[in-house]
Amino acid sequence: MKKINRTCVFISGMTAIAVCFLAAYGLRATSSTAFCLSCHEMRMYQQEQTVSSHAKDKDGGDIACARCHIPQDAGLRYFAVKIYSGVKDVAVHFWEQPQQLNRVRAQQTARRFMDDANCLACHADLYKNAKGEGSVSAIGKLAHDAYLGRNGQGKRFCSGCHTNLAHLPVFDRGMQINEAFASRLSQNAAGLLPDADPGSATGSAVFNEEEKR
């Protein structure tokens, strides 16, 4: 009886260790850009990101989807966002069409789960501009004062004010502030950029469909 118990404990322990390793591997694998792009509807967003100001990080490395869209600390927030986003994306993949996606709602959902810590990992000094070369604008200084609680109570989180940084739907392209990004996107679709993405024609086809709606 004792022998059986020991065997049971050993098998249970090994199974638990194997499950932990598999879970860790699964979590890592499902956070990769390659995994995100395995769903064809995600390619449009990647094409936008590759010509955005958020294609590369401050060290020149590629920015993966998970780096902005999922909290980086492996705590409860991380697991909650992984589960919620994963289930939502699978549901959208199987039951909706990319052309029917409501990007206004998609923007709202994405902003909701943007963790400020992910932004602050690169943009540590909020009084310097994005490249860290000079100071922010007067409006930026006021907004960041409010964000840091030094002036007012208007903390809106990074993505509350900073929109269209890595993705730009058609309906936001007419805004003056998005002119440079919109221009890069159309140049990329026309193959005019030096590192133009040949697949971006597919992306623009989806956009055109979206625009017609």
Binding site: F113, G152, F157
Partner: peptide
Amino acid sequence: FFVYINAAFPTVRCEAAKV
């Protein structure tokens, strides 16, 4: 899970809106 999601990631992310 949904209670936690709604508490940890509110849809309105503006602190002024809470005041």
